[in-house]
């Protein structure tokens, strides 16, 4: 187990994983996109604009999921000061920010034909903007603070405080009146998405997760290389 987290052996593993994901990613992407955009049925009410959902919903899930993992890693890092954790969270943050933006932009594009407006300040959308803000703060604190120890400490605090926002986003549609519809896929109980639309949604989610893994591994690799080159900070 210790050996697995050793930096040189992890490097070989990263390389292998990247190659593996690369070999299956584009085929899966093609399949998922063609099912989502062509073969899946249109919605009875929204028509073809339902297809935006196949990007919007996975993007929002990933944005929330990666912030949760960011918070967990930061929590452990703040207490135990494990340098590897800060490298991992540093590599996760840009992906999360990108998917938060993606969720906001696709949601806005979907809102125009269905709601009749690009933008409203309801609880769900506002809390998503706050999430993007926290991601931004996290990344900025690593970029702007030169003292690494201090940067780690502050970014960890940002992630931990920002994590309070995650359940607020999740339950905003239940706690308050929002224009955004409540969740269709529930952890308990049956979901209100028909199975012919559920399949492309889950496929797109899987493909986007693969994409995240790919970007994460590449970024993680560069972070390790950077440390190796400096040759002063051992993990």
């Amino acid at each position: 187990m210790i050996k697995f987290f050793n930096i040189s052996s992890i490097f070989v593993w990263i390389e292998k994983l990247i190659n593996f994901i690369n070999s299956i990613f584009f085929i899966l992407l093609l399949i998922a996109i063609s099912i989502a955009l062509i073969f899946s049925p249109a919605d009875y009410l929204q028509g073809d604009s339902v297809r935006i959902m196949y990007v919007h919903v996975p993007a929002a899930w990933i944005a929330l999921g990666s912030f949760s993992s960011l918070a967990l890693l930061s929590f452990l890092n703040f207490i135990f000061k494990i340098k590897n954790l800060s490298l991992i969270s540093k590599s996760i943050a840009p992906i999360g920010l990108m998917f938060t933006f993606l969720a906001i932009v696709t949601g806005s594009l979907w809102g125009r034909p269905t709601w009749g407006t690009f933008w409203v300040w309801d609880a769900r959308i506002t809390s998503m903007v706050i999430l993007a803000f926290f991601y931004f703060l996290f990344i900025l604190s690593h970029k702007l603070i030169l003292d690494e120890e201090k940067a780690n400490r502050i970014s960890s605090l940002v992630a931990i405080i920002g994590f309070i926002n995650v359940p607020i986003i999740k339950y905003s549609v239940d706690w308050w009146n929002t224009l955004h519809q409540p969740a269709s896929i529930k952890i308990t109980g049956s979901s209100t998405i028909h199975s012919s639309m559920m399949l492309p949604l889950l496929l797109m989610f899987f493909v986007l997760i693969l994409y995240c893994a790919l970007i994460f591994l590449m970024k993680y690799k560069t972070e390790i290389i950077r440390i190796k080159k400096k040759n002063l900070k051992r993990l």
């Binding site: 049925p41 009875y44 009410l45 929204q46 709601w115 209100t192 998405i193 028909h194 012919s196």
Partner: peptide
Amino acid sequence: KHDENYMPP
């Protein structure tokens, strides 16, 4: 306001 139901026509 759209509801949470998605289904083919």
